[in-house]
Design a protein around this nucleic acid. Structure first.
Lengths: 176, 176
DNA sequence: TTGTTCTTGAAACGAATGTTTCAAGAATAG
DNA sequence: CTATTCTTGAAACATTCGTTTCAAGAACAA
């Protein structure tokens, strides 16, 4: 995982990876079956840890939780993870068969994480998921920008603007 | 360009490309210098055409313009372009040196396109750019989602929510 | 113990990679 | 015309790739 996060997927090769982790290509293939399966497994594990690290973020208001999430996302040590993530995203879109589970989980898991509390508060599933989409896709877009430009001031200002408007987008409750 | 859009960057190889366009690897290298330079040039050209195709979108209100842009982005024939774009993005983040210009233009050009009209209307450059960041990053995030899930209903609903709140994020005018 | 499965290193395989070499032909200049 | 440059095909080059083969050794079951 560490090697993948650091070196990425572009041009990833078994032999250097094996050497770096003190193994041989033979062993990697023995346990993972193929290079691609190995990548898929590593991505799944990284994803799971990522989700766990954000699931614990709690705050008084929803916007405040988002703010904290953004703070964690845009912290320096998160960037390699997101670089790997966006890299995997590009490959996954090109090879949906191989990365099917990555593509599913990369949206669906987070949507559920965000939408579920709203559903429990009485919002319809549909509107909760639409709102969760705004949140998830917004943060992803900001992160893509930040990884590209490292223009923290501008992106942070944008996130502030966006956060300020988030409450107005909160879904209506179901009519009781 | 057509070949790149269709086949992507992952595992791109000179020989199949050359055959598909009725040339030889030798010729491609003769004119582009290297495979990587070729990719960079093609991406630049694609980007320019993309920008031109969105620059003409005009409507009465800003939100309406955004809605039309989203409509064009999420049209079926746009998807291959965005797949290529996200793929390039992943590689560019991993190799900033080679793709430096791609990374710059991919944010900055669009920011200017969005922010400039606002500046001309008397908004400060800073707030215009923050707002433009919300717009650009939001649309990118939505597009990444849509390319992944093709869940048009959910994403469209989210875009609607987001568009409805956009006006509230518009930057204040400079004090006269 | 014996027999079996699990794990691994070394080496080889075949294929494909980007790029270069070389030489011939086309185009252009003077 | 001649001389020079531009363009191109065929082939070779040197790597590198993921993966397989084979055989030896470790672990374990009985």
């Amino acid at each position: 995982m560490r090697y993948l996060v650091r070196h990425g997927l572009t041009g990833l090769s078994l032999r250097p990876l094996a050497k770096a982790v003190g193994a041989s290509p033979r062993v990697l293939l023995y346990y993972f079956g193929s290079k691609e399966k190995m990548v898929v497994e590593v991505l799944a594990e990284v994803r799971q840890r990522q989700r766990a690290s954000y699931a614990g973020v709690k705050a008084a208001s929803f916007a405040e939780e988002c703010r904290r999430v953004w703070k964690q996302m845009s912290a320096d040590d998160s960037e390699p993870l997101f670089r790997l993530f966006f890299e995997a995203y590009g490959m996954a879109l090109r090879r949906p068969g191989v990365y099917k589970e990555f593509l599913r989980a990369t949206i669906e898991d987070w949507l559920q994480l965000i939408a579920e509390p709203l559903c429990r508060k009485g919002h319809t599933r549909r509107s909760a998921r639409a709102f969760a989409t705004v949140v998830l896709d917004g943060l992803r877009g900001f992160m893509l920008d930040y990884c590209t430009t490292h223009d923290r001031k501008r992106v942070d200002r944008a996130v502030d603007l966006w956060l300020g408007a988030l409450d107005a987008m909160r879904p209506e409750r179901k009519e009781a």
